[in-house]
Simulated assay, not measured.
Amino acid sequence: MSESKPNGKPQPRTGKSLKAQQRRQEILGIAMDAFAAHGYNNASLAEIADRAGVTQAGVLHYFRSKAQLLTSVLALRDETDIEQLGTDRPRGLAFLRHLVDTVRHNTEREGIVRLYAVLSAESVTDGHPAQEYFRDRYAGLRALVAEALAEACELGETRPDLDVEEAASALIAVMDGLQIQWLLAPDSVDMTAATNRVITALLADLTGKPT
Score class of each variant (00 low, 15 high):
A75C: 07
A75D: 13
L76Y: 07
L76N: 11
T80D: 13
T80P: 01
T80A: 13
D81T: 11
D81F: 14
D81A: 14
G86R: 02
T87D: 09
D88Q: 15
P90M: 05
G92H: 03
A94E: 07
A94N: 03
R97K: 12
H98W: 10
H98G: 12
L99S: 15
L99P: 06
L99C: 12
D101L: 13
D101V: 11
V103D: 01
R104E: 12
R104C: 09
R104S: 15
N106M: 14
T107E: 06
T107S: 08
E110Y: 11
G111Y: 03
I112K: 10
V113E: 02
V113C: 09
R114S: 11
R114F: 08
L115Q: 06
Y116S: 14
A117C: 12
A117Y: 02
V118C: 03
V118Y: 00
V118P: 01
L119Y: 03
S120F: 05
S120M: 10
S120Y: 05
S123T: 01
S123M: 01
T125I: 03
T125F: 01
D126S: 06
G127N: 01
G127W: 00
G127H: 02
H128S: 00
P129N: 02
P129Q: 00
Y133W: 13
F134K: 00
F134N: 02
R137W: 08
Y138A: 12
A139K: 06
A139C: 07
G140A: 05
G140H: 00
G140I: 03
L141A: 15
L141I: 12
A143C: 09
V145L: 09
A146V: 09
A148T: 04
A148C: 05
L149F: 06
L149P: 00
L149Q: 02
A150D: 09
A150Q: 08
E151A: 11
E151I: 12
C153K: 15
E154M: 13
L155G: 09
G156H: 04
G156C: 06
E157R: 00
R159L: 10
D161S: 13
D163V: 10
E165R: 14
E165K: 13
A167D: 05
A168Q: 01
A168L: 04
A170N: 08
L171K: 04
I172G: 08
I172C: 10
A173H: 08
A173Q: 10
D176A: 10
G177N: 03
L178E: 04
L178C: 10
Q179G: 14
Q179Y: 10
I180G: 12
I180F: 09
